[in-house]
Amino acid sequence: MIRVLLADDHQLVRTGFRVILEIEDDIEVVGEASDGKQAVYLAERLRPDVILMDVEMPGMDGLEATRRITTANGPSVLILTTFDHDEYLFSALQAGASGFLLKNGTPEALTDAVRVVARGDALLAPQITRRVIAAFARPGVTAGSDPRRLAELTPREHEVLVLLAGGATNAEIAADLQLGETTVKTHVSRVLMKLGARDRTQAVVLAYELGVVRPGPPRG
């Protein structure tokens, strides 16, 4: 079972998410938080696999709560918000969020996102990925990434990073490089470790920051 904690200051929203998620046989909602402080506390107490985190909450907001949870090697955080603003997006990524979705998505998108994040992968809605790419196309946009990290990658790992940054799944990387998916997973894990990236999302951001790839047409 995938154990999920809901963090949102609106009870009606939490109830709606609970109904959507608990229909699924493999997902269990183990707790609810109405603010960031409570989310941090319950993350440590309940040890969920995934936290669905609102951004704007009274007291400690969702971004600060995410930062504290991920810094403590806590569960993966999936940011859910109605506020489609770049400052929230980039702050969430910098805080260590593994995914970012808008609340106007479908129930299927929500449950799929929970499963993706629970596997240890990262997820961004397509429109958000495009904005991340566009942002890093602008001169001077960087979080101070160390280019020496790239020197630690093998040629094959570099190829994997390029494909990751283009939005390729493990299956697509395996097909492109004529490798088995298990081998690809190993390469992805090594890329994340060498770059110091928590997950695939941060690896993609680093790839654009370090100039490994440049914005271009979407994959496919």
Rank of each mutant, 00 (worst) to 15 (best):
L206W: 01
A143Y: 12
P75L: 11
A7I: 04
V30R: 10
L89F: 06
M193E: 15
V117K: 11
V141Y: 00
E64N: 14
V30L: 05
F136S: 02
G36K: 09
F100G: 03
L78E: 08
R131A: 13
L179Y: 02
V162C: 06
E152V: 07
R200K: 13
R219M: 14
E87I: 14
K103E: 09
L101D: 01
A168T: 02
D199E: 11
L42M: 14
E181A: 10
P215F: 00
L123M: 08
A168I: 00
G196A: 10
G105H: 13
V50E: 10
A168R: 11
R3C: 06
N104L: 08
V114L: 08
P107W: 06
V116A: 13
G211H: 08
Y208D: 01
A203W: 04
R115I: 05
Q94D: 15
A118D: 02
F100R: 10
V204P: 00
T182S: 14
D8S: 10
E157Q: 15
L80A: 09
G16C: 09
K185C: 05
P147T: 14
R3I: 03
A174L: 03
L63V: 12
G99N: 12
I128P: 11
G144N: 13
T183K: 08
I69C: 13
S76E: 15
R3H: 07
D176K: 15
L42K: 14
P126G: 14
V117S: 06
A72G: 11
V4F: 00
V40M: 08
T66Q: 04
G167N: 09
L163Y: 00
L123F: 07
L63P: 04
S145C: 14
D86W: 07
V13P: 01
T129N: 06
T106L: 13
R115H: 05
A122T: 02
E56H: 12
A33C: 03
R156Y: 07
G167T: 10
L206V: 00
L161D: 00
Q202N: 04
D146C: 07
V13A: 07
G31F: 05
V160K: 10
V184W: 07
A92D: 01
E87D: 13
A122L: 10
R115T: 01
L195G: 00
L153W: 08
L163G: 07
G120E: 08
S76D: 04
R149W: 05
L52C: 14
P75W: 12
L192V: 00
F136P: 03
I69H: 11
D26W: 04
T70Q: 12
T169N: 07
L12Q: 04
D25G: 09
D84H: 09
R130F: 03
G59Q: 02
M53Q: 11
K185A: 09
I51G: 04
S145I: 02
V116Y: 09
A122C: 09
R68M: 12
T81H: 06
E87K: 09
L161R: 03
E108L: 14
G166A: 11
L5R: 06
P147W: 14
K37Y: 03
A97N: 03
E159L: 11
V19L: 15
M57S: 02
N170D: 14
A151N: 10
A109Q: 15
V114P: 00
L78P: 07
H85W: 09
Q178I: 09
